[in-house]
């Protein structure tokens, strides 16, 4: 019986270690996804119609976000929040953050249209899209999905997509997952820490 109890405690101990592994030294406001997700890697089309890869902004902290330009609430709100968070950072750091807005609605969102949309929010945003298959692969890589609702009589339809923002550091490693309930200053704080870590 004592052997059973000993083995039992070893098993439980292992389980606890496994459950506690996600801890880290930095206290992030966002969810720490270091090691959970693969590096930032894709080839999409930028708003000028040219191919774009993450290396085009190598060394920068990159924020990946899925959406579509007809998006009524989540996308504009998220874009505005992220932009405000960047504005709250010290001026010298703002240039080291790039937002990657990936439209998952290639049917309606042409590169030009995405260009107009992202320009409205600021100049550190790169608007991106591709064909549906490529977008599905990218979404799958980051464990998310998107779907299209039924079109109404005017042909308008809703697009369901992830509300999360994936943050990658200067070396393209997955670092943080920003959820929609985080405040602007919390996001700003995290981004500042990341940029500072990249400089060290």
């Amino acid at each position: 019986m004592s052997r059973t109890i000993r083995t039992l405690s070893v098993v439980l101990g292992l389980l606890l270690v496994l459950a506690g592994c996600s801890g880290s030294d930095t206290n992030w406001n966002a969810k720490n996804i270091r090691g959970l997700m693969p590096e930032l890697e894709f080839q999409l089309t930028a708003t000028d119609g040219e191919p774009f890869t993450p290396e085009d902004r190598a060394g920068q902290v990159r924020l990946l976000f899925f959406g579509f330009t007809n998006c009524p609430d989540i996308c504009p709100a998220t874009m505005a929040r992220l932009q405000n968070a960047v504005k709250q950072m010290p001026e010298a750091m703002r240039d080291e953050v790039t937002l990657l807005f990936v439209s998952v609605d290639p049917e309606r969102d042409t590169p030009e249209r995405i260009g107009e949309y992202v320009d409205f929010f600021g100049d550190n945003i790169v608007g991106l899209t591709s064909d549906e298959a490529t977008l599905r692969e990218l979404a799958k890589r980051y464990r998310t999905t998107f779907g299209y609702g039924k079109p109404d009589e005017d042909g308008n339809y809703d697009v369901s997509h992830s509300s999360a923002v994936y943050v990658f550091d200067g070396q393209a490693r997955a670092r943080l997952l920003i959820r929609s309930d985080q405040s602007i200053s919390q996001i700003s704080e995290d981004l500042e820490t990341l940029v500072r870590q990249g400089r060290d």
């Binding site: 496994l18 459950a19 996600s22 959970l36 997700m37 464990r143 997952l177």
Partner: peptide, 27 residues
């Protein structure tokens, strides 16, 4: 006893909200 603990424990383990989140993010 170990078998029963493991059987129920695994359900609890993977349904720990924190770990569940990670498991859904990490392939």
């Amino acid at each position: 006893l170990i078998a029963a603990t493991l059987f129920v424990g695994l359900i609890y383990l993977w349904l720990t909200p924190e770990l569940h989140f990670d498991a859904m993010l990490s392939r």
